[in-house]
C-alpha cells in the first residue's frame, strides 16, 4: 500500500498532528513501507477465526457504585497549561 502526500495529510489531520511540509515525503515513504510490512497479514485466510482482544476469556469486573474520589482540583490542575477559575482554558470553541 503506497500512501501519497494527500493521504499523509488527511491522516495527519484526522490525528491532529502538524507535519512540516518538507517532512511529508519522508512520512509517506515510511508509512508506505510499514503498510507493506503489515499487508503480509492478508496472506492468511482467517475466515472463521475469532478475533482476540485479550489473552484470557476474562469478563469485566464491576465496581460498586460508591463515591471514592474527593475534590483534588488544585492538585490536579497544578501543572495545567492554562486555567482560570477552576476551568481549563482553550481557544474559543465556535459551535
Amino acid at each position: 500500500m503506497a500512501l501519497d502526500k494527500s493521504d499523509v495529510e488527511s491522516i495527519a489531520h484526522l490525528a491532529r498532528l502538524a507535519i512540516g511540509e518538507a517532512d511529508v515525503p519522508a512520512y509517506a515513504e515510511n508509512l508506505s513501507n510499514i503498510l507493506t510490512l503489515v499487508e503480509q497479514m492478508s496472506s492468511v485466510d482467517t475466515r472463521g477465526v475469532a478475533p482476540m482482544a485479550h489473552p484470557f476469556e476474562m469478563v469485566q469486573r464491576l465496581r460498586e457504585d460508591v463515591v471514592s474520589e474527593e475534590n483534588q482540583r488544585e492538585h490536579l490542575q497544578q501543572h495545567a497549561p492554562a486555567v482560570q477559575d477552576g476551568l481549563f482554558l482553550v481557544p474559543k470553541v465556535i459551535e
Binding site: 500512501l3 493521504d7 495527519a12 507535519i19 512520512y27 515510511n30 508509512l31 510499514i34 503498510l35
Partner: peptide
Amino acid sequence: KRRIMVGTY
C-alpha cells in the same frame, strides 16, 4: 507520529 498515523489509518 508515524505510529499514531499508522494506527489512525
